[in-house]
Design a protein around this nucleic acid. Structure first.
Lengths: 97, 97
DNA sequence: AATATTAATCGTATATTTGCGATGAACTAT
DNA sequence: ATAGTTCATCGCAAATATACGATTAATATT
């Protein structure tokens, strides 16, 4: 097997995905989005014991990591899994192990 | 699909693994351990541009997450992948996606 | 125009992470 | 005994993460 490189681009990308997955609340949100029809921020907030602003922060992080997308349907925001990056992350984790 | 639970034990465990994987240096170390014969701390330090104390810190985190084991062979310390937990993490990530 | 709804963002507090150099512990070799 | 090797830990600084209440922005309703 070949020697790994530091700051290998894949490692940076994978680390980014891993970071997004590194908090139980975010794992919960991802699972929730992957199984429910109503995926507005409010629906997620209702399922969690933390403040709306905190949920919003977690959603922002998942969005910045590319794992979810948000669509404004004023005054609500609809969230869903970004399937392309979800598959990419899945593949990258599978490849890593 | 059933509704996810907050603080689901699997989520806490998976988040722990994800956190261990959330830094490029740690991904590098894991890859290095999984492909090299000489896996003493010094070998790893030599491959990285960061201080020995920082590497030691990353090794500690990987160890606490259960992904690696360290064996003292004074004055060196030999590190290797903890295969049981490695497989467990692999399965948990695969199941999650 | 005034009010209500929804969700992001701001400001703040606290905790954790990351990195470093210096030091210490456990030996080995001279 | 002294010096050298290897690696963990300490103490510190800076950056980042987590959570909260309050505020703001965008829009719909009355």
């Amino acid at each position: 097997m070949k020697k790994p490189e530091l700051n290998n681009k894949d490692h940076v990308k994978l680390a980014r995905f891993a970071k997004a997955l590194s908090h139980p609340t975010r794992l919960f949100i991802l699972k929730f989005l992957s199984c429910c029809e109503s995926c507005y921020t409010g629906n997620i907030v209702n399922e969690l014991p933390i403040a709306q602003s905190s949920v919003s922060q977690h959603l922002k992080e998942l969005k910045e990591a590319g794992l979810i997308d948000g669509t404004i349907e004023t005054p609500k925001v609809y969230y869903c899994i970004n399937k392309k990056n979800w598959e990419l992350a899945k593949k990258m984790f599978a490849k890593f192990f």
